[in-house]
Write a protein that binds this DNA or RNA. Sequence first.
DNA 1: CGCTGCGTTGAGCTTCTTCAACGATCGTGG
DNA 2: CCACGATCGTTGAAGAAGCTCAACGCAGCG
Lengths: 227, 227
Amino acid sequence: MEIIASVAAIPLFRGLTPEQYDQLGTIATVQQFERGQTIFSEGAAGAGFFVVQSGRVKIYKLSIDGKEQILHVFGPGEPFAEVAVFLGAPFPAHAMALERSSCYFFPRAAFTGLIASNPSLAMNMLASLSIRLRQFAHMIEDLSLKEVPGRLAAHLLFLSSQQDGGDRLRLHITKAQLASLLGTIPETLSRILAKLQKQGIIAADGAEITIIDRERLEELASGEARL
Amino acid sequence: MEIIASVAAIPLFRGLTPEQYDQLGTIATVQQFERGQTIFSEGAAGAGFFVVQSGRVKIYKLSIDGKEQILHVFGPGEPFAEVAVFLGAPFPAHAMALERSSCYFFPRAAFTGLIASNPSLAMNMLASLSIRLRQFAHMIEDLSLKEVPGRLAAHLLFLSSQQDGGDRLRLHITKAQLASLLGTIPETLSRILAKLQKQGIIAADGAEITIIDRERLEELASGEARL
DNA sequence: CGCTGCGTTGAGCTTCTTCAACGATCGTGG
DNA sequence: CCACGATCGTTGAAGAAGCTCAACGCAGCG
């Protein structure tokens, strides 16, 4: 089983014993999704959870008139839809593959069995959910207390730190998706990117963005400054 | 120890054995807070987590210019600040007692020890965090995809279901706090409440609110209708 | 070559916030 | 018992931020 070996590389499962990897590898299956394919819809029964193996997956909500708010974009090694496992409840949001992606799938019943007998797996899971919770709290804070330029600035700084920490960074999603992630629309995002460039704070070339005045960007992100 | 007996009544600890209650009661202490007293501030070291015994506690974020976004208002039996336990990280938000309140406090190290040896406690905790996560996802959805009337309508329906499920409900927080919970300001909330009354959808008398046209309220909450 | 998705720009409008003033209530201290 | 201040809630007028609608350029791809 090659699954077993690759499961061991998932951060969520760090620090487990070889036997535990075996168990995980035994219950896991791999699923393939095409770009744009729906992985599950809000309200569907949650039979288990996923971990991205390759590709990119968005988790999102839709309003009644079709507007989208992206909650997360997950890449390799990141779990999603764990909530369904621990509540035995329907998925609370939609999931779609942004590119051709493959995901491990862990069925609910088998996984909860593993947790019950593996305290360190339980602790890993608790830490993972806690991180998620903190991210959501941050998102709520941004949506409610910052304006779009502030959210964008914070996101660019986040991307910079996620990547090499330097001033040059790449967007891994389209600008329309970035807009949805920031809780706004493409038009508004486009205008604000233009403003940031005009003011010499960043330079943008397609998905390639360069931070020119990091200090001002940080002031924007913290809410000290305005555009 | 009276603590042990009362700890058993906390939903988070439902289904544990008497010995487990003993252990929990042993590590728990009780803390008293006055109305308006800060329980902890964002960024402070998280030495453990709390469960409300009596009173009411708000968890909130502040912007640089003092604007507040309430993330949660917790009442008796509800845990808060668990994230600090599982990440060993600083508190990600502020906590303040809205009334004279008392809380159980569970120190981090002792509690993680209990979790490691009590799978059902771990499962309870995972379920608790999952619920929290779902609530946050809902809040993000509301903030980003609904306008204030929709958020208010959804909250009133939520309160109705939380209470007796009937058409008569009470706000347990001030309207200024409700505004902060809904991601807006008191002025806006006041105007929208007035509109809802003028249109015969609700009747409001101070903290006492009566749903008159539940159908229209549901349409507002779902985004089908506008004011 | 034309289609489709992505991104940008402009004009107008809606929603919400800001600023200011004012009434009501409540607890406290004189 | 009353006066006072503080908190809370309401209302009005003006302004800002962001959304909607529409048009258009551009690139990739069948």
